[in-house]
Nucleic acid binder design. Structure first.
Lengths: 251, 251
DNA sequence: CATAGACTATCACGCGGCGTCAGAGTCAAG
DNA sequence: CTTGACTCTGACGCCGCGTGATAGTCTATG
């Protein structure tokens, strides 16, 4: 298997310009370059492009994708499993949007009341929670039902406050990025984070620890936190790791 | 219900800057502007923003969204139905990607062979066909199963040729945009388009006519064809309409 | 009443990820 | 050899905002 630019582009449904660009930024180097200057791609690069397209499908930036794919410990099969669960979460989100549509139509027919907030359910509101559900799914699925049951039990206003508090915790941590992850203000913020999580489900120490690791390793988490600050993912992981050690030694 | 910029932005999960920008480009004007210069949004604008977000979710450009929402015949409820079916098509696409993941994992375990083209199934390859399935769904669902059954029966190489021919038809039509839609070269291209459709299902004259109209009215079709050429959607509709009249008078 | 913090506004630069085009070289078929 | 489709590099520009600056407005508190 050996493809020129157009051949691979046609197969993948991208443009030749895209492949040029990806070469230029070091994201997808061709398998070889002929004496004529032409790029040639083999199965290794086709597989890498597939990974790129999956990450792109999940709205991960190209520089992030490059970082992920270039880590020595990158495991392609594990990444595919991760994509799979992320895509399933996306499917659920879309189904949530479809429900919003149904409710909006009922509203327009005068069959039901609808607040402005309710109109936008499914677009972005529960993104963070959905990511965390997904991470939990990596370690155990019982949390999903529990999480939904708890969430649905809260009043709308309470839900807004919970989400706002979650966001405030991360902003607080960004403000303490120069501190030691083990310092008291940081650990207090992590305790608030822990409490915030408990609105969704009762996290075991294992889940807490796994979440902490996922925040820097899982592509969507990493992308989300990097957008807040480039150093936040690793900082979060270190701080949560310390917090979990404290939980373990206190028990 | 009356919201300031931040209030509506928070509800909708967008940024105030986005709302400023949408005002600036005439996409979403506030319901009113106070003496202090502040923008205020009511339920009318919240509903419009919801529509915008649905179209954005479906990757429609903002200028296209504006065109659609500003047409005098815009029917919000009908549009929501349209979004619904588009989102369901998106769900199916994501499920297709999930299948690709499963097959890729099997390939990596050595359990199955996989071509480079197969790696990219679900990303973009069948976009056109999926749109057309969706349009058919608007007029009758029996075509969906028939379409899938036919498609699955073709060899991979044949599938590639069918899709390429579909693309060639549209490129041919773009080259004849200065011609009369009723002219012989254009009508011949539409006949090829008709034949191409028949690889998927046997379209009734009603479906053909409806597809012709959908090409300029249905947001995703319109966006797709506008990307090929700004005048193509309306040209297609006019050419197909003429072709259908010829079919009817020949019968 | 004064202050502080959170909000509002406009303005403007810049970014990511390409699309598009130009000019020149390469390849394969007739 | 010619032609058309491909290849390359280079470069401008677009879309949809994010970000930051500056200044005005609003609301709660002391």
């Amino acid at each position: 298997m050996r493809h020129t630019v157009k051949q691979l582009a046609d197969l993948a449904g991208v443009s030749p310009r895209t492949l040029h660009y990806y070469d230029e930024i070091g994201l997808l180097k061709p398998s070889s370059v002929g004496e004529n200057g032409y790029r040639y791609y083999g199965e290794d690069t086709a597989l890498r492009l597939q990974q790129i397209l999956f990450y792109r499908e999940l709205d991960v930036s190209l520089s992030e994708i490059r970082t992920i794919l270039d880590t020595p410990r990158f495991d392609a099969q594990l990444a595919l499993q991760s994509h799979r669960s992320a895509l399933q979460a996306r499917v659920e989100r879309l189904n949530g949007l479809i429900e919003t549509i149904d409710r909006t139509i009922e509203h327009m027919r005068g069959e039901r009341e609808m607040s402005a907030g309710e109109m936008f359910v499914g677009f972005d509101e529960e993104t963070q929670r959905r990511y965390e559900e997904e991470a939990s799914r990596l370690w155990g699925e019982k949390h999903v039902k529990e999480s939904r049951r708890r969430w649905d039990g809260y009043l709308k206003e309470k839900q807004g406050a919970i989400l706002a508090e979650g966001g405030a915790v991360y902003r607080d941590l960004v403000a303490h990025l120069d501190d030691d992850p083990a310092s008291a203000p940081v650990q207090q913020a992590i305790a608030r984070w822990h409490q915030n999580l408990r609105y969704f489900y009762e996290p075991t120490p294992e889940v807490l620890h796994g979440l902490g690791q996922a925040y820097s390793q899982h592509p969507q988490f990493r992308a989300t936190f990097t957008r807040m600050h480039p150093d936040l993912p690793d900082f979060l992981t270190a701080a949560i790791e310390h917090y979990c050690r404290n939980l373990a030694s206190a028990a």
